[in-house]
Each structure stands twice: as structure tokens, then as C-alpha cells.
Design a protein around this nucleic acid. Structure first.
Lengths: 219, 219
DNA sequence: ACCAGAGCTGACCATTCAGTCAAGTTTGAT
DNA sequence: ATCAAACTTGACTGAATGGTCAGCTCTGGT
């Protein structure tokens, strides 16, 4: 039987292999994002990557394997962004940094965000364990952190959990609902200036909303 | 050929028909929500509604027709909620009312929200015209309204468009990402108290975030 | 120059899909 | 009770899907 895991004895070979895999993963990410797992077809992914369908099965044993790899890659990127919500620094710095990073991610990884959204909407059949371990742990520590801010009087008392959801929702909305946003923007993608302005607006409302930045804006 | 549009000469008949249609639409909404248009199968919808597949095609000529009806029904509900963002009243009252209504909708119509999200993520193949007409008009009038609030000094100067997106994103997140939220809530749905608390928190952050409810007021 | 193994692909297969249809059953007006 | 129209459904069909495979080409180490 043909194996998809050859020894990587040759540097040039394995490099070319990685490149092809990335090509397929990129195409798959886009197709899965727009049509969901069930709606996506290997033929469509093949078309988007410019490769014959049989070639996809040479690199990825099944549609589910390919989907799994796509989702895992996205989770890695999410983790990188999550790390920017540092436990040190002022509340304002931590939140501003995290929101800004997540907004940038929504612009650069629109399809990844959509795949994640699709996966969760379907009940997270693949990533359920991530949600219960990594995501839950991350969330718990940040909630504890925010509770500390509240206890010290740095920010107003609000339920930290709903604040986090608000940040996730708002930032990811710019990726998941990009089409709607573009339609309401005369059918054109947001400009650099609009992205900056949106990011700043989100930061301002969130920060002021939890009691930071309140006295500063209106002199 | 069998027609799906008989004369409604009999009251009892047409009533039963409407009931069956609603049964199918409810089942279809759930399946389309969880699997998207392409991932949903008529067989699955049949199973969810407890009817044989052939019966579905008696009431709805095609899968696309059924999907269209589901989406249209959701849009109607969205319009009802949108109407609660009244152009009269104080900013606080209008926003609070609208956010509360949208949060309630996310709880009562989880699947509808997901279908809408799926549709937009796929590039709005069915509802594109709604986005360009009804939604754009609604958005424009509310933006003008909010700009008026800013001009009069009632709220702080923020870009109204991003505020609206923030409200949509946050409220709909509770429907679209319900599974993730439940997983982070020990695998149980949010309680009445949690819904109330989340709604209140969202209102508080948004209102304070735009300069209402803040300790300092404009002169 | 050689050649083993990696990479590639057209043609094929079993399964599942949306949609059809003919042969039924139920219903309500008369 | 009658009957025509509305409703129901198991069995079917052509098309599309995920996946396979035999046989081809290309490549790098010798």
C-alpha cells in the first residue's frame, strides 16, 4: 500500500513535500471555511489547489484527516494570539494588545476563523477535547486575572467571562462576517485605515466599558 | 404532476398543511444550522422531522426551496428585533432595548442565528439582495441616528458602524457559539440567571463604553 | 548512466445524494 | 355513501461523492 509518510532522507524532497502539503491545506481551509465539512468536496479542494483529486489522497489519507490538519493548524495560530494576553502588565496594556492581535488575525486569517466557527457550530466534533482542556484552562486563568483587577479596583466589577466572550465575538466577527461587512462597505474590503479605526473603536469601547480610560477622553 | 400549491378551500386542510410545513421548517432549520446547506441532507431533515423523505418533496419542491424558506423566516424574525432599535427615546433606552432583545433572540432562536451565520460565511448566495437593500438601509438610518447622538454630545464620539457590528457580534455569539459557551460552563446550558447577567454585562460595557453611565458627564 | 523509491494521475468503484414516481390512503364536501 | 382531490410513501434513478489503484514520470544518490 502506498504510504503518506516516507522517510525524509532528502532535504529537497521533504521541502517540496511540505510546500505541497501547505498548498493543499490552504485550499482546503478556504473550501472548508465557505462550505463547512459536509458541504466541502475533495473535488472542490482539488480545484482550488490546482491539483488532481487523487493527488490530495496521496498526501492526506482521507477528507477527515485533511480537515483535522486544517483545524489543528488554526488552533496553533489561535494559541499564539492567546499568548499575547499576558498575565503581566496593566489591564489596559494586556487587553489592548490582545484585542489588537485578534483583530489583525481576523484580517490575515479570515478562512481559519470561519473554519473554527463552523466547527463549533457543528458541536465541535473534532476539537471538543481542546475546548475542554486547553481553552478551558486558558479561560480560567484569564478570568482569575481579571477578577484580580476587579478586586484591586483597577477596573469596574463586571463578569470576566462575558467580557472575554465579547472580545472573541467582536474580533472574530470581522472574519466570519467579512462578506456582510464588505457588502455594507459598498462591496469593498475594509481599507487599512478602516481596520485601524475599527480596532481602535473596539479597544476604546471595551476599555472604557470596564471603567478604564473613562476620565481621560473628555477633558 | 403533483403540485405543492393546492387551493386552500378547506380551513382544516390548510391548517394541517401549515402545521406540517412548520414541522419540516423547524427540522430543516436545525439541520441546516448544524451542517450548513451543502452538508445537510434531505434524509437527515426527514429523520429530524419524523417524516419520510419523499414527503418533504411533496411540501417543498427542492432542497434549495426549503433552505430559502428557512432563511426567509429567519430574516423576518431579525427584522422584528431590528424594529426594537427605535429612533425615538434616549440612547440608553434604545440600545438597552435592542441589546436585550437580541440576546433573548439568541437564546430562543439559536438555530436561526446559526443558519444566518452559515449563509453569510458562504458569501450570502441567497440573501445577498437583502443585505444590499433592507440591511443596508436599516444600518444607514441607525448610523445617522447615532451620529446625531454624538453631535449632541449625548455619547462619546465613536464610529457608529463598528458599534453596531460589536452589538451584532456579541449578541449573536451566544447563539452561534452556544456549544463552546456550554462547554466552558461545565457542559451545561446557561441558566436564567446567567443569561440575565450576561445581558446586563453586555449592556453595561457597551453603554459605559460609549460614554453613557460614566461618572463624568459632558457639560 | 542507472535505478529504487517518491511523486503523480486517469480511470475506476461502492456508496450516498437529491429528486421522481406510481400506487396507495385519508379527507371533506356533497 | 361517494368521489375527487389532497396527502403519504417505499422503491427507484441518474448524478455526484470519497476513496482506490495500477501504472506512469520524475528525482537524487550512487
Amino acid at each position: 500500500m502506498v504510504q503518506a509518510k516516507p522517510a525524509d532522507r532528502s532535504g529537497a524532497r521533504s521541502e517540496a513535500r511540505e510546500e505541497t502539503e501547505r498548498l493543499i491545506l490552504d485550499a482546503a481551509e478556504k473550501v472548508f471555511a465557505e462550505r463547512g465539512f459536509g458541504g466541502a468536496t475533495m473535488q472542490a479542494i482539488a480545484g482550488a489547489s490546482g491539483l488532481p483529486k487523487a493527488n490530495l489522497h496521496y498526501y492526506f489519507t482521507s477528507k477527515e484527516t485533511l480537515y483535522r490538519r486544517v483545524v489543528e493548524r488554526i488552533f496553533t495560530i489561535w494559541l499564539d494570539a492567546a499568548a499575547t494576553f499576558e498575565t503581566s502588565g496593566t489591564p489596559e496594556a494586556a487587553l489592548r494588545r490582545y484585542i489588537t492581535r485578534k483583530m489583525a488575525l481576523s484580517r490575515s486569517h479570515r478562512y481559519g476563523s470561519k473554519v473554527w466557527a463552523n466547527e463549533v457550530m457543528q458541536g465541535a466534533p473534532i476539537i471538543q477535547d481542546y475546548l475542554e482542556t486547553t481553552l478551558r484552562d486558558w479561560t480560567d486563568t484569564r478570568i482569575a486575572l481579571i477578577e484580580g483587577w476587579i478586586a484591586s479596583g483597577a477596573i469596574q466589577p463586571i463578569e470576566p467571562r462575558w467580557l472575554l466572550y465579547m472580545i472573541w465575538a467582536t474580533t472574530q466577527h470581522y472574519a466570519d462576517f467579512a462578506h456582510q461587512i464588505e457588502t455594507l462597505n459598498q462591496g469593498t474590503p475594509l481599507s487599512d485605515a478602516q481596520w485601524d479605526n475599527a480596532t481602535e473603536t473596539v479597544c476604546t469601547i471595551i476599555l472604557r466599558g470596564i471603567g478604564l480610560d473613562c476620565a481621560r477622553d473628555s477633558p
